[in-house]
Design a protein around this nucleic acid. Structure first.
Lengths: 340, 340
DNA sequence: GTCATATGTGACAACGTTGTCAATTTGCAT
DNA sequence: ATGCAAATTGACAACGTTGTCACATATGAC
């Protein structure tokens, strides 16, 4: 029987329901001896509080939602892991909610989710976390939320967040390529609906500027964080009259496409072409050559976001926090081959 | 206010609580006119039933759990997607529960999970789904469950399941390699705690036997479904006096390791070496060359498992169902180079 | 028109927990 | 001992829903 209730415990320990409740919730004002007796009864009956009843009675709830719309399994799994770690530590449940970020009634959908499942708040992953309209609607519904976003610094926009400095990280990668000696560096954009895309581009642009490397429009192509875009983009770049000696893909998947296109063109990475990605997904370690990329600490970021949300729910004051990615140099980058 | 309750609806529609409840739950015995009035009130107040209260009152519950311990993000995301699709359709919630499959008190952990969160049942992914001891413990706790397992046929072991015929699929891959002309085919095992591993091996073995290709122990190495095992295993195989002309990795990750090792050894896949994987993960499409592999339809399988579980909860009779993977031929396999 | 039967509706309790508030016990200074 | 504040405990209601059962109304057969 896993069906022991607080009533059974109370009877066994010869105390009132309320006293058991107090013990469970670590409220003060319970004599040591009483608490021991209750604990023993809990142990013996293998009692576990029923979350439905608990959240029904107390206005409080014991679960948060994780909202995402992102096709990248590595990213999502990492976010889930991080959020779960925080939830388990704080005794919360986690409700995952993949959804369509372009849905017209997304705010209502999320409110219903939160209401029906009695969620105490939501962690929003990109790109939902970056749609201000959505945020305002959710705020109007009084739904606590914490965002994971891309920003070069604390946005101070009133919506709590954990922010990742993609710009800085893209700057670091670009600077590294320049220091290797590259001057024609291709850049393949990520998806337009993600704020990380322009951020990464700005980092690239800034590095070129700071190092006095001329920017060339023909080396910069749009895309959508996909392998196919990487493949097509690279093919186009490599067909230029004066092709780049290095290509920076806005994420690892794009870079994977670049690697494939390079091989298809008979080029030897990194000697004929340097390739850099962004994200440090397992792919970047498992490709050949392994990818130079930027490590994101996604799991930590998500854990922090969930922790922040729970703190906010508990009424604590929340401070935004930034995470800086870290350059990871692997085998896909090398100095350019001297021109003949 | 997302805080309308059934009481508000009742007042607005001038009916009793119970009648509203009847409308919500599609019970019969409500006059059309009354129902319309209730529906209108629900609409106006934007009422949504509270799942906590509902599952507290009715013994029934409206959520199931998805239990897994699998490091492969592609696999897990696919399983989640499938299970979620079924849950959404049936009006259920899904609680994900990654865990340590080797934990000693796993059964208790899962019972607590089910009890605390009022889960109606569990979908078990490998390898948990294959530990009979665990299954028996859970059954003793009266927890409905459906397993996703590897089996060459319906196991008829009393525990409902959706089964995947890995043996057959591995047979198909091996047979394909043999038909290309390979006679020395390396095999890299997956993890021992997954039943899919011996199943895949048996398929390999059977194909060799059927086609009269001699099995050679030196070509068969153990491993654990990891890139590193693939890399190390391939390096060892390629260092043999008479190396294989094809290597069959038990999953795509292993095959990725094989690809990397081949490249490190200066071999050209598929001309110097054919490589086959298993799983049809996105990696298999994005590697270069893309991998010949076996498509698993993981998402469908998981959806079916969840649907089966819900049917079981509703008291329906459940029939196990098998899924056969499908051979996917891509660029990593070719006839062996004629020996000099 | 009467009765039996089906259909629709509502009052009330219950699910397992916590909040409120009052009752009881304890500890300590007198 | 006595008084008084503080600590500890318990009785009871409440959260939002559904199950049970009884009542009210409509339907049909005689």
């Amino acid at each position: 029987m896993g069906t022991a209730t607080i009533r059974d415990v109370a009877k066994q320990a010869r105390v009132s329901l309320k006293t058991v409740s107090r013990v469970i919730n670590h409220e003060g004002s319970v004599r040591e001896e009483t608490r021991d007796r209750v604990m023993r009864a809990i142990e013996q009956l293998d009692y576990r509080p029923d979350l439905s009843a608990r959240s029904l009675r107390s206005a409080k709830s014991y679960a948060i939602g994780l909202v995402y719309d992102n096709p990248n399994p590595y990213y999502i799994i990492a976010v889930q892991q991080g959020a779960l770690a925080a939830c388990r530590e704080m005794g919360f449940g986690l409700q995952i909610h993949p959804c369509d970020s372009s849905g017209p009634r997304l705010a209502e959908e999320l409110r219903d989710l939160a209401h029906r499942s009695r969620l105490a708040g939501l962690v929003l992953a990109p790109p939902m976390s970056e749609r201000m309209g959505l945020l305002r609607e959710l705020a109007a519904f009084n739904i606590p939320l914490v965002r994971i976003i891309s920003a070069a610094g604390d946005p101070h926009d009133g919506f709590p967040c954990v922010f990742v400095d993609d710009r800085d990280a893209a700057y670091a990668i670009t600077a590294y390529l320049i220091q290797l000696g590259h001057v024609r560096i291709g850049f393949l954009w990520g998806g337009k609906q993600h704020r990380s895309s322009p951020e990464r581009y700005k980092g690239y642009e800034k590095a070129l500027e700071d190092y006095g490397v001329p920017r060339s429009d023909e080396l910069i192509l749009e895309g959508d964080y996909s392998f196919d875009d990487g493949f097509r983009g690279a093919r186009r770049l490599l067909g230029l009259a004066e092709p780049p000696t290095a290509i920076f893909g806005s994420n690892d998947e794009i870079a994977a496409g670049v690697l494939a296109a390079a091989r298809a063109a008979g080029l030897h990475v990194p000697y004929d072409l340097s390739v850099a990605g962004f994200e440090d997904s397992p792919f970047s370690r498992h490709s050949w050559p392994s990818l130079t990329t930027s490590r994101q600490r996604t799991e930590e970021i998500a854990e922090h976001a969930a922790r922040l949300l729970i703190a906010q729910i508990h009424g604590g004051d929340v401070e935004n926090e930034g995470f800086s990615p870290e350059l990871v140099v692997r085998g896909s980058t090398a100095p350019p081959r001297p021109r003949p």
